[in-house]
């Protein structure tokens, strides 16, 4: 700690109990309040979700998560089809995006000349800045027809013996939503994977090269394993984004509250059903059930996000420790 900081602390400590007297104490106190407001708001958010979903929690208990009836008219609510849809689309999206995004991150961190790398990184960041409703708009008018006319008939012809690739090709459904989500997770995975790849110390690469490894071998067997925690963290961040993504999915998922094995079939996700039904919910039970879904979504994304942050923090600590 530097000398001024210690001085400031000392004067703060002696005067703390005499009220706020100096400008420093006022500044300290005011900014503290605002920093604490972040904690307060987060706590309030959790509390609000918990209280507002009380009616549904009391009526359905844990069966809410395990039943698949969704009938607002009869007052029957089960979250299973939505949880299924959310998980299925997110996992499919990651299956599509991980190879592409990690490949791109390797290219940007290891191979591309710095100017090309920073230009591409900039473009990828712009991809992250595009509002999700725009992704939805494009997906509805380009991805859905493509799926209906080309991709789904092709998959049916080649892999149609699997239950996942059967049924009518109608365009909207799990697969279309997954493709859109995959694109939306690119920037997250690329940006953070690239950073953790670049944090790998130079000696690691040079040692591998000196042992006679080719560039690819050095990258794939030394650099990528070294940065694996950061890459995993970036994938978790992408997953959290995919799980909570609302607008783009709502527009192409097909809005069918049922579970289908086929990826071509229309489905529903948690975020999409909240977006579609919340404003029109007729009964308080319906609203409450939707809020409970929000609570489920919130809990899952918080856990995934927390894991991701911890992984990223762990790798950046490791990186700084190595470079010192």
């Amino acid at each position: 700690m530097s000398a001024p900081a210690i001085l400031a602390n000392k004067s703060g400590r002696t005067r703390r109990w005499h009220g706020l007297q100096t400008g420093d104490e006022v500044a300290h106190f005011v900014t503290f309040l605002f920093a604490a407001s972040v904690l307060f708001v987060t706590a309030f958010l959790v509390w609000e979700l918990w209280i507002q979903s009380a009616e549904s929690r009391a009526k359905f208990g844990f069966h809410f998560l395990a039943t698949s009836d969704w009938d607002p008219v009869l007052g029957q609510f089960g979250a299973l089809p939505f949880i299924y849809g959310t998980v299925l689309t997110s996992v499919l999206a990651l299956i599509i995006s991980i190879p592409l995004a990690v490949g791109a991150a390797i290219f940007l961190a290891e191979l591309a000349p710095p100017s090309l790398s920073s230009a591409c990184t900039f473009l990828v960041e712009l991809l992250a800045a595009i509002p999700s409703v725009i992704y939805g708009l494009l997906a509805l008018f380009t991805v859905v027809p493509l799926m209906r006319n080309y991709a789904e008939p092709f998959l049916k012809k080649t892999l149609g013996f699997l239950p996942f690739f059967q049924g009518p090709a109608i365009g909207v459904g799990y697969l279309a939503a997954s493709v859109v989500l995959a694109v939306m997770t690119f920037p997250f995975i690329i940006a953070i994977s690239r950073e953790s790849l670049m944090e790998v110390p130079r000696d690691q690469r040079e040692a591998a090269m000196a042992l006679g490894a080719t560039r690819w071998e050095s990258t794939f067997q030394v650099v990528v394993p070294y940065a694996r925690l950061g890459i995993l963290g970036s994938i978790f961040l992408g997953l959290a984004r995919a799980l909570g993504e609302t607008m783009a999915v709502t527009m192409v998922i097909g809005n069918d509250p049922a579970m289908h094995a086929s990826f071509f079939a229309p489905g529903y996700t948690i975020a999409a059903v909240i977006a579609n039904e919340f404003a029109e919910a007729g009964t308080s039970l319906h609203t409450s059930a939707l809020i409970e879904m929000g609570l489920v979504l919130f809990s899952v994304t918080i856990v995934v996000n927390a894991l991701a942050r911890l992984l990223v923090i762990a790798t950046s600590r490791k990186g700084t420790a190595q470079s010192q």
Binding site: A35, G244, T246, L290, L297, N305, R309
Partner: peptide
């Protein structure tokens, strides 16, 4: 530790799905 908590919470709040933020704002 307090700063770490705030920082961590802010990152989590940043990652909360926007639809959940909508529910919160609706309730408030």
């Amino acid at each position: 530790s307090f700063a770490f908590a705030v920082r961590y919470m802010a990152d989590l709040l940043n990652g909360v799905p926007s639809i959940v933020i909508g529910i919160f704002a609706w309730g408030v």
